[in-house]
Write a protein that binds this DNA or RNA. Structure first.
Length: 860
RNA sequence: GCCCAGGUGGUGGAAUUGGUAUACACGCCAGUCUUAGGAACUGGUAGAGCAAUCUGUGGAGGUUCGAGUCCUCUCCUGGGCACCA
């Protein structure tokens, strides 16, 4: 028999499958759309970690194909981005040149795995034919008022010389280069993602989404919905007595009040001061009334110059300045309290102003301690266990006892932030629970038109412009007369022009600003002189809708044909890294919902099932990186062991979503396994009359085979590839033992059994399975066959091992018929010598019988 | 600090509903073959003990005839968020 030569057969089948168009039958009744997160084609090429997700998707695609589905399984390139641009700056070559080269490398590497990609559908986000539609979507958002210009302070990376979105930050550092980001006031294009916050949150729980809980939870946290109340507090000058209760709400002019947001209105009677953020406009409005304005202004300027990191660093002490000469009035008790400016309050969240309750908020407590401000306890722990018996105490003593407990906490430098029962407020609220008080207080605010319920989100609008070269031009023209005007649809795409220098300017303009004949244009509205927008779109623009384009990649009239969209959407399976949980996956959901609103798509969510692929770490347990010199190249692994062995290893390593270290020895094991399958084909008995011999051994193998079919089917469905493969190994080991090793039993392997084995192995090791399949004389591809279904009649063993326990400990194992009765087992077990050792002379209290599993004899 | 995953042999891991802990694979040990090569073959491999047996799923309790699995507390690791009022 020939030896197993993966190098030869893999190349052969890849070519044949491709030329036969094996993956391009889109005419079947049932559809399945399997999608990988498309890669950024970096100069370094693939390492062994990249293909893990792709292999899983491929296994799934082949499995679905065998189950009779038309499978859409495309691949493409997310090719805009900084590395190509930085390479261009360094080497003076156009980014598209390096990108093209990298794509060729990636494609060649991917092809060695034998993936079922339909390369006719390949897309590239940097192709004008593609980004025409990225620009089109932006225009639609602009038309609907969802894309707007803003001059609010934004995150600026001084090293990359561009603004960044909140999602692009990692702990206040630039996600790409690790530089500290500063706040800068720059004109920016922003997408109103917050308009979709509620739907982005709520639809995570819709049946349209079947995602892992961890990813959903990350998105929930990122969106950060909080429910509270917002209310007004009037500002009084120089200890004046004007309270908001005496001034009719309509006469409250700017500068006469501040508005605060709180989720803990129940603690409002504990307010002993209030705080505004340094950015708050009331500071400017009260300039004349603030007697220490110089000091305040100094503080404001200093905090604006801080980096995000400096401002949010936890260990850092809180700082602030009291606004002398003004106070604010708590509407609940008409008490005026001092007002501070402090940068622990964020300008961009809520109203940029808060009521401060030091007894019941950690941050306020810290600040109050430092500035020696009064601390008033207004909630106490709910009824519950205490150190002493409080049931006999009269109520006032009980409350005094509880307040004392909180006081001890405060003395120990800790605020009491939990919910509890209200005290020290007014009689309407005292003794209510926090939740009850909050509702009653909110109702009071609404009655008196002082405030209302309010929902806030942590998520910000998406800052969408970048001051870099290698991105989609934003299709906007600025006209002095008409303002920002969208480029007419028929003029799309706005092509990225050639430039001399790719360097970012650092001025807040992109390098495109230097190309006069590109920048200067005419206004599409009035025909007058106008300038093009020179900012480009962020890295994440092209990937926010690419899954739609694969469905209809060559459509020149529209981004996707309406019927094809209905046929193929949503994506049934989406596989990629968890690092995209709050960026790509959020952006894509946002765009998809917008496209739904304007009638381009018909599903509310783009990705039905999402699986996140666990990292493959280097053998040293660190991330694979050039820096550590621990990168394993898939080409070498495939060259040494073959693509099928590599595919098997990555699926066998462990649970799919888990990070696991690479171990090349593991690939050896997979190769051994495939060799076994290969050699086993020699055991097929083809002699007339002996083919269907039903020996005892064959029956055993039948049972195992059908159990394996069942398990492999279920495991693939559930992404448990590791256990599917171990079950296949168990089957192959048993077949080898039965047919190849025990010549004396005269067992004969039936061809149909072996073919079933090949079928259920084929998604994992497609080349080997196809080769063996056709060697058996089959003419059509194995992938045009039908996935076997486990036959119930073979699933039950005739004999099973029954465990005999005494007091829960295993003492003996009995081989019994599957349908043995409880009494029969009891009898056998109690007479068993080994069991007797533990039961003799003891009273049998109870016998527990679990059919097909065990019998437990309970003695005293 | 908050949220989410996890902690099982020398290693990666299995045990799907409370029912035989360590399947499958790697590594290691012993042996076979000999072209002294292994990506070949055979057997062994949780720990302690001559053995019967005992002990074992991060730790401490609990529920149960029976717990890796359920409950309470606690320690550790990985990931995410982080002054969001």
């Amino acid at each position: 028999m020939e030896k197993y030569q993966p190098k030869e057969i893999e190349k052969k089948w890849q070519e044949r499958w491709e030329s036969a168009g094996l993956y391009k039958d889109y005419s079947r009744a049932k559809k399945f759309y399997a999608l990988d997160m498309f890669p950024y084609p970096s100069g370094a090429g693939l390492h062994v970690g990249h293909p893990k997700g792709y292999i899983a998707t491929d296994v799934f695609s082949r499995f679905k194909m065998l189950q009779g589905y038309s499978v859409l399984h495309p691949m493409g390139w997310d090719a805009f981005g900084l590395p190509a641009e930085n390479y261009a700056i360094k080497n003076k070559v156009h980014p598209s040149v390096a990108t093209e080269k990298n794509i060729a490398t990636f494609k060649k590497q991917l092809e060695a795995f034998g993936f079922t990609y339909d390369w006719d559908r390949e897309i590239n986000t940097t192709d004008p034919v593609y980004y025409k539609w990225t620009q089109w979507i932006f225009l639609k958002m602009f038309e609907k008022g969802l894309a707007y210009e803003s001059n609010e302070p934004v995150n600026w990376c001084p090293s990359c010389k561009t603004v960044l979105s909140n999602e692009d930050l990692e702990g206040g550092l630039c996600e790409r280069c690790g530089t500290q980001v500063v706040q800068k006031r720059l004109r920016q294009w922003v997408l109103r993602m917050t308009d979709y916050a509620d739907r982005l949150l709520a639809d995570l729980d819709s049946p349209e989404i079947n995602w892992e809980e961890s990813i959903k939870e990350q998105q929930r946290n990122w969106i950060g919905k909080s429910q509270g109340a917002q209310f007004k507090m009037s500002v009084v000058i120089n200890g004046g007595s004007t309270s908001i209760m005496e001034v009719e709400p309509p006469t409250l002019a700017e500068g006469n009040y501040i508005e605060v947001y709180t989720t803990r209105l129940d603690t409002v009677f504990g307010m002993t001061y209030a705080v505004v953020a340094p950015e708050h406009k009331v500071i400017e409005q009260l300039k004349a009334q603030i007697s220490n304005y110089d000091e305040v202004e100094k503080y404001v300027i200093a905090s604006q110059n801080k980096t995000i990191l400096e401002r949010t660093e936890l260990q850092k002490e809180k700082t602030g300045v009291k606004l002398e000469g003004v106070e604010v009035v708590n509407p609940f008790n008409n008490e005026s309290v001092p007002l501070f400016v402090a940068d622990y309050v964020l300008g961009g969240y809520g109203t940029g102003a808060v009521m401060a309750v030091p007894a019941h908020d950690e941050r306020d407590f810290e600040f109050a301690k430092k500035y020696d401000l009064p601390i008033r306890i207004v909630i106490v722990k709910s009824m519950g266990s205490t150190a002493i018996d409080t049931s006999a105490l009269p109520e006032d003593e009980y409350i005094a006892y509880r307040i004392n407990e909180i006081q001890e906490m405060l003395d120990n430098k800790e605020a009491f932030a939990d919910y509890g029962n209200i005290v020290n407020s007014t009689s309407e609220y005292n003794r209510l629970t926090s939740q009850q008080a909050r509702e009653k207080m909110t109702a009071w605010l609404e009655e008196n038109k002082l405030g209302q319920k309010k929902i806030n989100f942590k998520m910000r609008d998406w800052i969408f412009s970048r001051q870099r070269y290698w991105g989609e031009p934003i299709p906007i023209v600025h006209c002095e007369k008409c303002g920002a005007v969208g480029v007419p649809e028929e003029q799309l795409p706005v092509r990225l022009p050639e430039v001399e220098k790719y360097e970012p300017t650092g001025t807040g303009e992109s390098p495109l600003a230097n190309i006069a004949d590109w920048v200067n244009t005419t206004c599409p509205k009035c025909g007058g002189p106008a300038k093009r927008e020179t900012n480009t779109m962020p890295q994440w623009a092209g990937s926010s809708w690419y899954y739609l384009r694969y469905i209809d990649p060559k459509n020149e009239k529209f981004l996707i044909d309406q019927q094809l969209e209905k046929d193929w959407m949503p994506v049934d399976l989406y596989v990629g890294g968890a690092e995209h949980a709050t960026r790509h996956l959020l952006y894509a959901r946002f765009w998809h919902k917008f496209l739904f609103d304007i009638g381009v798509v018909t599903t509310i969510e783009p990705f039905k099932k999402l699986m996140h692929v666990g990292l493959i770490l280097a053998e040293d347990g660190r991330k694979m990186s050039k820096r550590w010199n621990n990168v394993i190249n898939p080409d070498e692994v495939i060259g040494q062991f073959g693509a099928d062995s590599m595919r098997l290893y990555e699926m066998f390593m462990g649970p799919f979503s888990q990070s696991i270290s690479w171990n090349t020895n593991g690939v050896v094991g997979m190769r051994k396994f495939l060799e076994k399958v290969w050699k086993l084909s020699a055991q097929i008995n083809t002699e007339e009359g002996r083919i269907n011999t039903e020996t005892q051994n064959n029956k055993k193998i039948q049972t195992l085979l059908h159990k394996t079919i069942k398990k492999v089917t279920e495991d693939i469905e559930n992404f448990r590839f590791n256990t599917a493969l171990s079950q296949l190994m168990i089957l192959v080991n048993a077949m080898e033992k039965e047919y190849a090793k025990s010549a004396t039993t005269k067992a004969h392997m039936r061809k149909e059994d072996y073919e079933k084995l090949l079928l259920i192995l084929s998604p994992f090791a497609p080349h080997l399975a196809e080769e063996l399949w056709q060697k058996l004389g089959n003419e059509n591809s194995i992938f045009l066959q039908t996935w076997p279904v486990a036959d119930e009649k073979y699933l039950k063993d005739e004999e099973i091992e029954m465990v005999v326990q005494v007091n829960g400990k295993v003492r003996e194992r009995l081989l019994v018929a599957i349908d043995v009765t409880e009494d029969e087992v009891k009898e056998t077990a109690l007479e068993n010598e080994k069991v007797k050792i533990f039961t003799d002379g003891k009273e049998i209290k109870k016998i527990i019988f679990v059919p097909e599993k065990l019998i437990n004899i309970v003695v005293n």
